[in-house]
């Protein structure tokens, strides 16, 4: 158990955790940020996605020590119900969730992706999002929401 300072959603937090603790458990249990979710712990589903700097990473298998000195952003840090990020707003407008368990990963992944490709084609979106799993079958709406978000942010 050691003391670490990590910067999450623009604030510094001192946390107590062994350095090998995956970032996900620190975010969820120490900082009570429930946007990032546990799906598999195996880098297979993307439910745990957060941003480390500009990159979408899987926090279930990223040791908290790797977050030292790099800003972490979670779903909560993107926007709120009152002031959603354009990607969050597009997901709400397109009703792009059923159970919503994958939604964190979908929004965090597509937000990072749109920074690299601001006006992707539908095929590019599908290709980029294939590593993120949705078991409810919300894919059509997620693709539509990402397209709409790209437009809104253009």
């Amino acid at each position: 158990m050691s003391k670490l300072t990590i910067s999450v959603n623009g604030k510094d937090h001192a946390v107590q955790a062994s350095p090998d603790t995956p970032l996900l458990y620190v975010l969820r249990n120490e900082l009570h940020l429930h946007g990032p979710r546990f799906g598999c712990g195996l880098l297979q589903c993307g439910a745990c996605t957060v941003h480390l700097g500009d990159k979408a990473i899987r926090s279930c298998a990223t040791p908290v020590s790797e977050a030292k000195g790099k800003p972490v952003t979670t779903l909560e840090g993107l926007g709120t119900i009152e002031k959603p990020h354009p990607v969050q707003k597009a997901f709400i407008d397109h009703q792009a969730a059923q159970c919503g368990y994958c939604t964190n990963g979908m929004i965090m992944a597509s937000t990072a992706f749109l920074k690299q490709n601001a006006s992707p084609s539908e095929d590019e979106i599908k290709k980029a999002m294939t590593p993120w799993l949705c078991r409810c079958g919300t894919h059509f709406r997620i693709v539509a929401a990402i397209k709409a978000a790209a437009k809104a942010m253009a």
């Binding site: 940020l33 909560e76 969730a97 939604t103």
Partner: peptide, 14 residues
């Protein structure tokens, strides 16, 4: 339920 689910404000059993 979707606005809360899209912003991390939703509480799941987990």
């Amino acid at each position: 339920d979707i606005p809360a689910k899209a912003t991390g404000a939703f509480t799941y059993t987990q």
